[in-house]
């Protein structure tokens, strides 16, 4: 039996196929606003890679902010449970997942079965999320990956407000006007992002091993600053960290099928 997990995030949509506890296909698309259309597209893409048809799939589980609107899904699960299950599947020593997505960030603790036993999520403010990093990078005239790369080079940082994205942006603009070095501004941004996450982490007890998932996990500077500020060592995942939600959803699709 083949199970599918679809994760409709705010910036990207991901799909994963699971067969005999192995990932047999993955797909990632970006930039579609309608959750239903995104789901259709990413579902087709993941099937196409293995030349499969819809009826080959036993159960589809949707997750992500658009999970309620996806008609092709049989069930839906919160992205928190899915990221937990996905990371645990990828590396079963993981007990804490720091997930930094486009619009939100979450810290998830899982038990020895990979089930969520605690979590926290940021409030509505975007500071500390992928979206805010994107805005800051744009202000500096860089892409997000360039920002991460440049920030890695700087040991010095300039102060950037941790209050909200608007204040952050104003500070970045001010530094630019003052002719400060881009690398130091970039480092200020990644440190502030890491601080926001540390703030969130204070609300629960982090347990080892700890990993990062979500799009921001690909930003080396943020990862480094998180390790420094939270004084922890991050454990690597065995799959693309951006796919954790979709992997988790596929696991729930499989569990559902087993239960029924």
């Amino acid at each position: 039996m083949i199970f599918c997990g679809i994760d409709i995030g705010s910036n990207t949509s991901k799909a994963v196929l699971l067969k005999n506890n192995h990932i047999i296909s993955t797909a990632l698309i970006s930039g579609i606003s309608n959750p239903s259309a995104s789901a259709e597209k990413v579902f087709s893409a993941v099937l196409e890679k293995r030349d499969l048809k819809r009826h080959d799939i036993s159960c589809v589980c949707a997750t992500g902010y658009g999970r309620y609107e996806i008609i092709i899904a049989d069930i839906n699960k919160s992205e928190i449970s899915c990221h937990g299950a996905g990371a645990f599947f990828s590396n079963s020593t993981i007990r804490t997942i720091i997930d930094i997505g486009g619009q939100d960030c979450k810290i998830i603790c899982v038990d020895e079965r990979g089930f969520v036993d605690d979590f926290v999520m940021n409030d509505k403010c975007a500071a500390g999320t992928g979206r805010s990093l994107e805005i800051m990078a744009q202000t500096l005239g860089l892409s997000v990956s360039e920002l991460g790369y440049i920030a890695m080079k700087s040991s010095k940082s300039l102060p950037v407000s941790n209050k909200c994205s608007i204040f952050m942006e104003l500070d970045v603009m001010q530094h630019l006007l003052n002719g400060e070095k881009t690398a130091q501004i970039a480092r200020g941004i990644t440190i502030t992002t890491a601080r926001r996450i540390a703030q969130l982490a204070g609300k629960l007890e982090l347990r080892n091993n700890i990993c990062i998932s979500g799009g921001v996990s690909k930003n080396p500077a943020v990862c480094r600053d998180i390790q420094d500020i939270l004084k922890l060592k991050l454990t690597k995942l065995n799959h693309d960290p951006q796919l954790m939600g979709a992997i988790g959803a596929a696991i729930f699709a499989r569990n559902k099928e087993i239960v029924s």
């Binding site: 407000s161 941790n162 209050k163 204040f167």
Partner: peptide, 18 residues
């Protein structure tokens, strides 16, 4: 102004002076 009387992180000194 939107600075904070006790938390310098909210608005930097430079921004405040500007």
């Amino acid at each position: 102004m939107e600075a904070d009387i006790f938390d310098k992180r909210v608005m930097s000194e430079e921004k405040l002076k500007k």
